[in-house]
Nucleic acid binder design. Structure first.
Lengths: 210, 210
DNA sequence: AAATAATTTAAACAACTGTTTAATTTTATC
DNA sequence: GATAAAATTAAACAGTTGTTTAAATTATTT
């Protein structure tokens, strides 16, 4: 389905509501009101509430896979540099697209819509294979250690980032940054997450540049 | 409120449904049917669906705080040993009480019930303070490094564990353990999570026993 | 300008929601 | 074994849900 500007506008509003109140607690009337359109327009444009959710996932995830392929094609970089860039980009995307990530978490926990779940699975598999290749390459070059549990490592990255999004106010408080404007805090958050996860990857991969 | 056996039985069934379908998508009729009681019994025993959720959190979290205080009082252990035990116990609890942890994640993402949210906040604060004390002690003893972002480190622990619970089938597949009986896999999962997180803590804390 | 298609609207729909009621059965107390 | 309390039931409640309808409006094409 090709998405018009009106489609996108409705999706944006729906995303906000889903992130805040969850899919089930968000009514079609809520979405219509937030988007400033008539109730029947949701069915008219998307067919149903559920198909709207599917459309949201298609829309938001299309860009994700492209990026990691691009990074992987940067021929002049060694495996560690590529992994580092992938970590940074993942954190960037998560922090910038917080609302969608929250919707993603909810959907993963409750696991209802088969279209969405399959889509998530596909993306995760692609991601794991790509980083798996990079690690293999690094092991050949003897800059990574031999035994690495990739799935566990990826879980730490995504788990740390997603859990941080959910509990960011706790983190903000722990750094006593309650009064900082949000944009500024967001930058610190991103930076700290990137540094932290890079450190973990370095340690687990056994990467130790002389 | 003192909980009778019937209370507990209803809570157990409700927990399963909340974990599987989410709080909002679970109807009072679903709970009543699963528990084998009349619809009106839910209101009779708990007052409302929302109060049932609150009762579930009270019930499940009461044991959690006790444990960490106990560990902290083991005088013969050094800070690192205590932290290690706390990691192990956290992973144990999470894997064994998966359903409740899933309900917890959902509630943290959508953030609706004030009683639940306040309760979660309180527990997390207690937890952070205790581990914070242990880290401070370790720094005094010069076995941990000076600059440690505790909130970030805790986020990695809880994020890794929770995200693993949600995506454990992916992990099981990545280890090619699809046909293993679940109890057996659960033990491996627990063990791997513990080892992994201990490694991360060691690396971030800079703990390096000669 | 007429005709056709696309968009928008208010109203209605049937099904489902959490909760309450009042009657009934079971259990405990004397 | 009578009396009171507790537990259980089926039915009804009022409000909300996602979706559809058929008419009205606007935009596009001829």
């Amino acid at each position: 389905m090709a998405l018009s500007k009106k489609h996108i506008h409705i999706l944006n509003q729906a995303e906000k509501l889903f992130a805040k109140n969850g899919y089930d607690a968000t009514t079609v009337r809520d979405i219509a009101e937030a988007a400033g359109v008539n109730l029947a327009m949701i069915s008219y444009y998307f067919g149903s509430k559920e198909k709207l959710l599917e459309a949201l996932f298609m829309e938001r995830m299309a860009s994700g896979t492209l990026l990691i392929r691009e990074i992987n094609n940067m021929a002049h970089l060694n495996p560690w540099q590529k992994i580092q860039i992938m970590i940074d980009e993942y954190v960037n995307r998560a922090v910038q697209k917080q609302d969608f990530f929250k919707v993603m978490i909810s959907e993963q926990v409750i696991n209802q819509n088969p279209v969405v779940i399959n889509y998530l699975r596909k993306i995760r598999k692609e991601y794991a294979e790509l980083i798996g290749d990079l690690i293999l390459q690094g092991q050949k070059e003897k800059i990574f250690c031999k035994k690495i549990d990739l799935a566990l490592l990826l879980t730490t990255m995504t788990g740390t980032v997603k859990h941080m999004l959910i509990n960011q106010e706790f983190y903000r408080h722990s750094l006593s940054l309650e009064n900082m404007p949000y944009e500024k805090f967001q930058k610190i958050l991103t930076k700290n997450l990137q540094t932290h996860i890079r450190k973990i990857f370095k340690s687990i991969l056994g990467y130790d540049p002389q």
